[in-house]
Design a protein around this nucleic acid. Structure first.
Length: 145
DNA sequence: TAGGCCATCTGGTCCT
DNA sequence: AGGACCAGATGGCCTA
């Protein structure tokens, strides 16, 4: 059977030999099998809603950010933006939020790919690689029908 | 203890 | 001008 052979594909077999759709186990979402937090807001005490002690994003004063033109060796001037501490802290907050949403997306993807129930939480790179393999596998199944 | 993974900070570049 | 995106650096945590 081709489908069965596909499951024995070495790549797939490395990652998935006991298909477990996490979708069927909604309780798995709060913590993974080794107890690491799945709720990303609790990872490392991450709380993007509250600024850090060194964040000044709550300050109302917005400093200006002059642009300095730096002459490069090739002749073409390069724009170098100099930002204030307040703007830097605000940018840090935005970056944290951005990474948070990125991790949320990874978390959603993690729940879509089959994994061992007892396996530790997939890393981001493992999640991407397994998703690729999984999509390939599903595509193969569809093409056989 | 080394290596992997991740969060965070930071500066540069692109885009609106 | 400023936000979004990206990549490099750094430090902490965890596991083999």
């Amino acid at each position: 059977m081709d489908i069965q052979r596909s499951f024995l594909n070495p790549t797939m077999f490395d990652l998935v030999s006991d298909v477990n759709f996490i979708e069927m186990m909604p309780n798995m979402h709060s913590t993974d099998c080794i107890g690491r937090p799945q709720d990303l807001t609790s990872i490392h005490g991450l709380d993007i809603s509250t600024p850090r002690s060194n964040d000044f994003c709550t300050l109302s004063s917005a400093a200006t950010s002059p642009v300095i033109t730096v002459s490069s060796g090739t002749g073409k001037p390069k724009r170098k933006r100099v930002i204030s501490t307040v703007q830097r802290q605000a940018a840090n907050v935005r970056e944290r939020k951005r990474m948070f949403s990125l991790n949320e997306a990874f978390d959603r993807l993690r729940r879509k790919v089959p994994t061992f129930a007892y396996e530790k939480r997939l890393s981001r790179i493992e999640t991407l690689r397994l998703a690729i393999v999984y999509i390939d596998f599903m595509t193969e199944i569809l093409q056989e029908n």
